[in-house]
């Protein structure tokens, strides 16, 4: 085989390998699902009390495609838009809290996984969190939950937006350190 044919084949092989390795990672992050439909969550996402005599606590429910929202850049970006549109800042500040608890830290009274955040938004919570189940379509609640996860650095950095086109209210979300939610039983009851 001529030398430049071999070169061309070698080039093609490298490109193919390159594609394959980043294909899976890229697909999820970059997809633009303009009209997302989510299967409804089954069961209770919020874990009950950690005190179960002699048994493990109930496992948190995982939604099949809801979790994908927190890896998808478009969904997080839409969540950022909706966070402003629906005035979540009115109680939560821009993640720092106010009337409502902070969303940028690792303390989650009702659970900090995306399914649990989704449940909190949809169902409402005591002490002032309204229920948005009938007021925000389910896919948008998932997008909001994905953005809330981004506030505490719990989304892939490549999927997070750096900043909005507003005054600077959070550190750039691409630089926020990852703060996985503390287990529920480590949250002090006074908080």
């Amino acid at each position: 085989m001529c030398s430049h044919c071999r070169a061309r084949d070698a080039r093609r092989a490298c490109v193919a390998a390159f594609c394959a390795t980043i294909a899976l990672a890229a697909c999820q992050r970059e997809q633009r699902d303009l009209d997302p439909h989510v299967e409804p969550l089954a069961g209770q996402a919020t874990p009950l009390s950690g005190l179960n005599p002699g048994e493990d606590r109930p496992a948190p429910i995982r939604s099949s495609n809801g979790a994908g929202f927190e890896k998808n850049a478009y969904a997080i970006s839409e969540g950022q838009r909706l966070f402003a549109w629906f005035n979540c800042s009115g109680c939560h500040g821009n993640g720092g809290g106010g009337i409502g608890p902070a969303l940028m830290d690792d303390v989650w009274r009702y659970g900090g996984s995306i399914e649990q955040i989704h449940a909190s938004i949809a169902q409402g919570r005591p002490n002032g969190m309204p229920t948005f189940r009938d007021k925000i379509p389910d896919a948008e609640i998932w997008q909001l939950a994905a953005y809330v996860r981004a506030l505490s650095g719990n989304v892939p950095k490549a999927a997070a937006p750096s900043r909005g086109e507003t005054i600077s209210v959070t550190p750039p979300l691409t630089r926020v350190p990852e703060q996985p939610p503390k287990p529920a039983d480590s949250v002090s009851p006074e908080r």
Partner: peptide, 8 residues
């Protein structure tokens, strides 16, 4: 006013 319409 019951459905999401009122949100926007």
């Amino acid at each position: 006013v019951q459905k999401p319409c009122v949100m926007c």
